[in-house]
Design a protein around this nucleic acid. Structure first.
Lengths: 259, 259
DNA sequence: CGCCTATTTGACCTTTCTCAATAGATGTGG
DNA sequence: CCACATCTATTGAGAAAGGTCAAATAGGCG
């Protein structure tokens, strides 16, 4: 894993959020970071910790889990390109546990770097802020998901969201998503019981919407899944496209609009 | 309603979020705003609008409702001192409908004012950012509330949250909260049916935790309600106290700690 | 091959929803 | 000030979604 990889992952992501210049991106060049390979279920941040570094996810998934709830409820999921604890830049006290869902690779970057970056480049500062707002919008959407959908559409919606987010950073273009998480993880994210999660997935399979084999989910009927879930990706704040990282999104957007 | 009222409401709130100087607060003096009296159920912002003003709530409650869900799910509730659409400063497109729960008074302040304020005072900029982060933390907590609690504890938790938030701006000190909202509103916020909301409230009454008469809720056994809901106000990010607006919070904090 | 974990299945139970009807409040025009 | 219209709260009964428990399979991996 090259140091440059962390650089480019973040550069792509920030560029997808706001217009930034080559000079802006160049500021990322001196991003000092520690690359860490995480084992499945490994805890990155513990409830109550004071974070001093940002956790930039390069590969795999991270999840925030509520510290209190008995079933270890998942309150959010992060995909590569996300900074899982962006908010700790301004309020370091950690609320909940940050845990790897399956093996993951992260770059740990001192808070200081982002504070300096924000001070030096208004455009980057803005991009980071938009990243934070995107997290917020996603969280709001999870509230809706838990509050107004039944198990089937809830699971479908989560899968749509993850797919769209992966695609916005150039992954899962072929609708094959790595799924190192278990059905119980999915259950914890959708607030249903593991048993019911299983039955729900079976139902999705029966409708020929997806295949879930081993550690890969393949969505076989994206338009139908989108329709079932009433998935509207607007809230993700993905820019229509402009270059590398988001150009492949066009088909997705078109398809959704078409539904 | 004096213009100065909007000023002081916001000043108190910002001061409760971050250390600000008298000079900083003085910048609020030239806050131009239009005071609007809203009727119950009146819509302030519509889904799809582009906001150009911030909506500072002075009195009453505002709620964000999802535009899609059939039951008009409430995704967040705002109390006086909140800026209900703070996030539109940076992403103006409105997602959901902003609606008054009961009669309310708001001050409409052009976005421009806050952008200038942020540019002129780092402390104020930081306070606004913390306000945004608080919204985010509350949203995350709603996810937990919907995901991991049953109807009874869910309603109890929401009431605890509203009470704590009101108290943090000097209201409802005596645990009497104005409740212009209907049981159906409560149901929409907790994602339960109105009928079940009614039964849940009856249960809370039966346990002598509260009285709900007409347009006032009186919490008669705060420690027990807190215990029932496993309410931990940490996430609200209320500063321990320092002056006017938050000094009265001490008893609350003490009581919660004691439970 | 054998252990450990994840998935799958069946039976039964609980919470919550839905529908429908009643009672109470609030408000309005005459 | 009353009668009606409307909205909100309350109650009961039956239905549905999802939860729990327990056991059986199926994979993955040393």
């Amino acid at each position: 894993m090259q140091a440059g990889f962390a650089f480019s992952k973040l550069a792509d992501r920030l560029a997808s959020l706001a217009p930034v210049t080559a000079d802006d991106l160049h500021l990322l060049a001196d991003m000092a970071s520690t690359i860490a390979h995480l084992g499945s279920r490994q805890t990155v941040l513990r409830h109550g910790d004071d974070a001093t570094q940002c956790c930039l996810l390069l590969q795999g998934y991270l999840s925030w889990q509520d510290a209190e709830s008995a079933d270890g409820q998942i309150t959010s999921i992060h995909v590569p390109g996300d900074i899982a604890n962006l908010h700790t830049l301004h309020r370091p006290r950690v609320d909940g546990n940050l845990i790897a869902l399956g093996p993951a690779i992260v770059a740990l970057v001192p808070h200081r770097f982002f504070h300096d970056l924000s001070a030096r480049s208004p455009a980057m500062s803005r991009a980071l802020l938009l990243m934070l707002l995107t997290d917020h919008a996603i969280q709001r959407n999870w509230t809706v998901n838990l509050g107004s959908r039944d198990a089937l559409t809830r699971v479908a919606h989560l899968l749509c969201e993850i797919t769209a987010r992966l695609q916005s950073v150039g992954l899962a273009r072929d609708f094959r998503l790595p799924s190192p998480f278990t059905q119980s993880d999915l259950a914890a994210a959708c607030s249903i019981s593991p048993v019911h999660a299983n039955r729900t997935i079976q139902e999705l399979r029966r409708c020929n919407l997806l295949q879930w084999q081993g550690k890969t989910v393949m969505i076989t009927d994206w338009p139908a899944l989108v329709r079932l879930a009433s998935f509207d990706p607007t809230y993700l704040g993905i820019r229509p496209s402009h270059e590398d990282a988001s150009s492949h999104l066009k088909p997705l957007t078109a398809e959704v609009a078409l539904v």
